[in-house]
């Protein structure tokens, strides 16, 4: 009996591993549910030429802004010296991080939360001696900021914008007068796939806009 149960377990386990492998290889329901995270081995997939960081701001009813992370009691850095908020690649948990600081501090009523993404080219991460080996021009660090989301006092989303990589891909695709003209005409609408394997892939997501006439 025990051996039979073991055989069933072995078969189920191997079947599950095989399903995850095939699902990932051919892109079939790869991220359909949480269980897939346990059988899809997609390490190293999200690395790009840009380093990004997240900043969380709260706006008081007086119009004063407060930086909500790192909190006054200290940052949580588990990988080197980078704070926890920066690992939230999707920005899905940023509001909760901000609200936690608000919940445990004294302050005027907060009426708005802002999630700001900062990005810079990774070449600026090189230390000076390596920079000098690679580039003749002196380093002039430059980073870009974009508001990724805004929430009202109750945590309702009032503004949502694509993340840095999606925005950049959209900019790259949209830099085409003919395409822009077509988009303005209303058909078809194109966008860059946020999760596409190739940043150059163009995915049609819209089809028709209806005339008011």
């Amino acid at each position: 009996m025990l051996r039979r149960c073991s055989a069933v377990f072995v078969a189920l386990y191997l079947g599950t591993l095989a399903y995850g492998l095939v699902s990932h290889a051919v892109g079939y329901k790869t991220y359909r549910h949480l269980g897939m995270y346990f059988i899809v081995w997609d390490m190293y997939c999200g690395w790009s030429g840009w380093e990004t960081r997240t900043h969380l701001l709260g706006e008081g009813e007086s119009g004063t802004y407060y930086e909500l992370d790192p909190p006054p009691w200290g940052d949580i850095c588990v990988f080197g010296d980078t704070g926890r908020r920066h690992y939230d690649a999707t920005g899905m948990h940023a509001l909760r991080l901000a609200q936690n600081t608000v919940a445990h501090t004294e302050h005027e009523p907060i009426v708005r939360y802002l999630v700001i993404e900062e990005a810079w080219a990774k070449k600026y991460n090189l230390p000076d001696e390596l920079w000098a080996l690679r580039y003749e021009a002196p380093r002039e660090f430059r980073s870009y900021h974009r508001i990724r989301a805004a929430f009202d006092a109750d945590g309702e989303l009032t503004l949502g914008a694509p993340g840095w990589h999606a925005w950049l891909a959209t900019q790259a695709v949209g830099n085409n007068p003919r395409l822009r003209k077509d988009v303005q005409r209303g058909t078809p609408v194109f966008t860059a796939g946020d999760f596409a394997r190739d940043p150059s892939v163009v995915m049609p997501v819209g089809h028709q806009t209806y005339s008011r006439d």
Binding site: H55, L57, G58, T64, Y65, Y66, E67, L68, P71, P72, W73, T101, V102, H104, T105, E106, H107, I116, E118, A119, Y144, H145, R146, I147
Partner: peptide, 21 residues
């Protein structure tokens, strides 16, 4: 001394963060 009190952000830093690319 009581709970931590949120401090306003430095105006220069705020301007930098809100300067949208």
């Amino acid at each position: 001394e009581g709970r931590h009190v949120l401090q306003p952000i430095d105006p220069q830093r705020l301007a930098m963060l809100l300067d949208e690319a």
